[in-house]
Deep mutational scan, measured.
Amino acid sequence: EDYYQILGVPRNASQKEIKKAYYQLAKKYHPDTNKDDPKAKEKFSQLAEAYEVLSDEVKRKQYDA
C-alpha cells in the first residue's frame, strides 16, 4: 500500500504536512482510544510505518525511487 495514501498527503508533501497528518491520524486510530475496533491497531501500525519512512529524508528518497 502507498505510504502517501495511508497518511493522506500528496507525494510532494512537506515534512511539516507529513508530521501533521501523522499526528492527526495517530490520535484518531490509537489503540487506546479504539479498544473495541480490532482494525485500529493494524491501521495505527501502518501509519507508524508510513511515517517512519516518509519522515526520514533518506528513507523517503529510497521509497520514492
Rank of each mutant, 00 (worst) to 15 (best):
V9P: 00
G8A: 07
I6Q: 04
S55E: 03
E1M: 15
D37H: 06
Y3F: 11
K43Y: 11
E17D: 14
Q24N: 12
Y22R: 01
K20A: 15
N12T: 13
A40W: 10
A26Y: 15
K59A: 08
V58P: 03
H30V: 05
D37W: 05
Q24L: 15
P31K: 12
D37K: 05
K19W: 14
Q62Y: 07
E57T: 11
K59N: 04
N12M: 07
D32P: 06
E42T: 11
I18P: 00
Y63A: 02
L7I: 05
N12D: 12
E49T: 12
K59C: 05
K41Q: 14
V58Y: 14
Y63F: 04
Y22G: 01
K20L: 15
K39R: 14
T33W: 09
T33G: 14
K43S: 06
G8N: 10
Q5E: 09
F44G: 04
A26N: 06
K28P: 04
K16P: 09
Q24S: 12
S55W: 04
I18Y: 01
Q24V: 12
Q62E: 15
E17T: 11
G8E: 06
E17F: 08
D37A: 04
K41Y: 14
D56E: 03
P38N: 09
K27V: 12
P31W: 06
Y63Q: 02
P38F: 07
S45I: 14
E52S: 15
D37R: 05
Y51T: 01
K27A: 15
N34S: 08
A13K: 01
A21Y: 03
K28Q: 13
K19G: 08
V9F: 01
D36Y: 10
N34T: 09
Y4H: 01
E17Q: 12
Q5D: 08
E57Y: 10
K27M: 13
S45A: 14
N12Q: 09
H30I: 07
Q5L: 10
Y29P: 03
D64N: 04
Q24G: 08
V9E: 00
P10C: 14
P38E: 10
E1C: 13
L54F: 01
L54S: 00
K35G: 11
D56V: 03
Q46N: 09
N34G: 07
P10T: 10
Q15P: 13
Y51Q: 01
L7P: 00
A26Q: 10
A40K: 06
R11V: 06
V58R: 07
Y63R: 02
A48Q: 14
Y51L: 04
R60V: 01
R11K: 12
R11D: 03
P10F: 06
D2R: 04
K61Y: 05
V9Y: 00
L47V: 12
Y3H: 04
L25S: 05
K16D: 15
R11Y: 08
I18F: 02
H30S: 11
Q24T: 14
D36C: 08
D37T: 05
A48S: 12
F44W: 14
Q24C: 12
T33K: 11
A40Y: 08
P38R: 06
F44V: 05
V58E: 14
K59G: 03
R11G: 04
D32W: 02
E42G: 06
K35R: 11
A48E: 10
I6T: 07
V58S: 10
E1V: 14
E42I: 14
V58D: 14
D32T: 11
V53F: 04
Y22P: 00
Q62P: 02
Q46M: 13
K41E: 10
K43R: 12
K43A: 09
V9M: 04
D2V: 04
Y3R: 02
A50F: 01
D32C: 07
A48H: 13
L25Q: 08
D56M: 02
A26I: 11
L7N: 00
D36E: 12
A13I: 02
Q5H: 13
A48T: 14
R11H: 14
T33L: 13
D37S: 07
P31Y: 09
L47E: 02
K16Y: 15
D56F: 02
E1F: 15
S45W: 15
D2G: 06
P31D: 09
L25A: 07
K61A: 14
E52N: 12
K35P: 14
D56P: 01
Y51D: 01
I6V: 11
Y3M: 04
D36A: 11
Q15M: 13
T33D: 08
K20T: 14
V58K: 08
A26G: 05
K59P: 01
L25H: 04
V9D: 00
A13R: 01
K43M: 11
A48C: 10
R11M: 05
S14W: 03
S45K: 13
E49A: 14
A65N: 06
E49D: 08
Y23P: 02
A13L: 01
K41F: 15
Q15N: 13
L47I: 14
K43I: 12
F44K: 03
A13P: 01
P31A: 12
D64I: 02
K19D: 15
A21G: 03
I6D: 02
D2K: 04
K16I: 15
P31C: 09
S45Y: 13
L54E: 00
Q5P: 01
D2W: 05
R60C: 02
K61Q: 11
A50K: 01
D32A: 10
S45N: 10
Q24Y: 15
L47C: 06
A50Q: 00
D36G: 12
A48V: 14
V58G: 07
A48N: 12
D2C: 08
S14Y: 04
G8P: 00
V9G: 00
S14H: 07
K20C: 11
Y22I: 01
Q46S: 07
E49Y: 08
S45H: 11
T33I: 12
K41V: 11
E52G: 12
Q5S: 12
T33C: 10
P31E: 12
R60F: 01
S14E: 06
E49S: 11
V9K: 01
P38W: 07
K20N: 15
F44D: 03
F44L: 09
P31V: 08
D36K: 09
P10M: 08
Y29I: 06
A65Q: 12
H30N: 11
K39C: 11
A65I: 09
Q46W: 10
Y63S: 02
T33N: 13
H30C: 07
K20M: 15
Q62G: 06
G8F: 04
Y4T: 00
Y3D: 00
K28R: 12
P38V: 11
R60G: 01
N34R: 06
Q62F: 07
K16N: 14
L54Y: 00
P10V: 06
D64E: 04
K19A: 15
E42L: 13
N12H: 09
L7V: 03
K39Q: 09
E57F: 07
D37M: 04
V53E: 03
E1K: 10
E17A: 11
P38I: 09
H30T: 06
E49I: 14
K43F: 13
E17N: 06
D56Q: 02
K41A: 15
A21E: 03
Y23H: 09
